[in-house]
Nucleic acid binder design. Structure first.
Lengths: 134, 134
DNA sequence: AGCTAGTGGACCCAACAGGTCCACTGAGGG
DNA sequence: CCCTCAGTGGACCTGTTGGGTCCACTAGCT
C-alpha cells in the first residue's frame, strides 16, 4: 500500500475525463492546467494509463486522451494497480517488502484479516463513483 | 501507516526482552548481536522506547534495558506509536499527508471504514502475544 | 511543410530512511 | 579514585527513490 503522488494525479485526471461528456478527448497539457499538475509529469502518467488500456491516445487535430470505457466500468482498484503495479495488494501495509504466508512480517496476521475488506471496497468502487464525489 | 525499519527492530527487541525471565536486563549491544541489528542504531531505538516509558535503562555494573511492565500490559499499538509518532493512526494508509474529515483524500471514506477495525486489533494485541508467536 | 501533442528514454534534485561517529555521563570494581 | 563499559544525544553521512524536467523523435491534421 502507500500510494504515490503519481497515483493521486492519475485519479484526479481520470475523474476530470469522467466528468465530461462521454468520449471527450482532452490533451494532457489542458488537463494539467485545469488541475494544477505539472504537464510533463502528467504526460508520463497518461502513457502508463494508456499502456494499461484505461485511456486511449489520439494524435493529429483532435489530440489528447479519452476513456476507453465508461467510468462506471472502471474500478478504483484497476486504476491503482495500473500505476502502482499489479502486486500492489500483495504488498504489506506495514512494511514495504511483500510479506506472504511464508515469511510473514510480525503483523502479517493483522493486516491479512483487514485487507480483503478494503480490497472488496476498492473493487466495487468505480471511477463514476469518484466523479460523483463518493 | 507504513512503518519504518526502526519499528520492526523495536518490536523484535522488545519481544526478545519479553521472552526472558521478567525483570531481565539486557544491554543494547547484546540484543543487537543476538538479533542481527546494527548496535548503534538499536541504542537509538531504545532511547526512544525509554523516553516513552516502555523500557527502563540501567547504568553501572548491571547495565542495559528492561521492560517497565509485563509484556501482557504493553499493547502493540503503544509500541508502534512510540516509534512512529502519536499521530500514526491519524495518517492515511494511502497517502502520507494526514487526511481528516475536512480536506479528505480521494479514498478517505474507504480507509476510514477500515481503520477502526485495524486499530482495535492492534490495541488488543500485546507484546506477550507477539512473544508467543501470535 | 508546419504545428502541436503524444512517446519514451535520460536525467536531475531534494528528502528521508537507515545508519555511523563521537564526545560526554554515570555507576560499580579493582 | 580512576578505569571501564554502556547509556545519552547530537551531528553527520549516504544510498535510494519519489517527483519532476528535458529532449529528440513521431504522428496526424491543415
Amino acid at each position: 500500500m502507500h500510494l504515490r503522488r503519481e497515483t493521486e494525479y492519475a485519479l484526479r485526471a481520470l475523474i476530470f475525463l469522467a466528468q465530461r461528456p462521454k468520449g471527450s478527448i482532452c490533451s494532457a497539457p489542458e488537463i494539467a492546467e485545469a488541475l494544477g499538475i505539472p504537464g510533463g509529469f502528467l504526460s508520463k502518467i497518461f502513457q502508463r494509463l494508456s499502456g494499461h488500456g484505461l485511456v486511449r491516445s489520439h494524435r493529429g487535430r483532435q489530440r489528447g486522451y479519452s476513456l476507453t470505457r465508461p467510468g462506471a466500468k472502471i474500478s478504483v482498484r484497476e486504476i491503482l494497480e495500473s500505476i502502482e503495479g499489479m502486486d500492489l495488494f500483495e504488498r504489506c501495509v506495514f512494511w514495504e517488502e511483500r510479506c506472504g504466508d511464508r515469511d510473514p512480517c510480525l503483523l502479517h496476521r493483522d493486516w491479512s484479516q483487514i485487507k480483503p475488506r478494503l480490497l472488496a471496497r476498492l473493487e466495487r468502487k468505480t471511477l463514476a463513483d469518484l466523479a460523483r464525489g463518493n
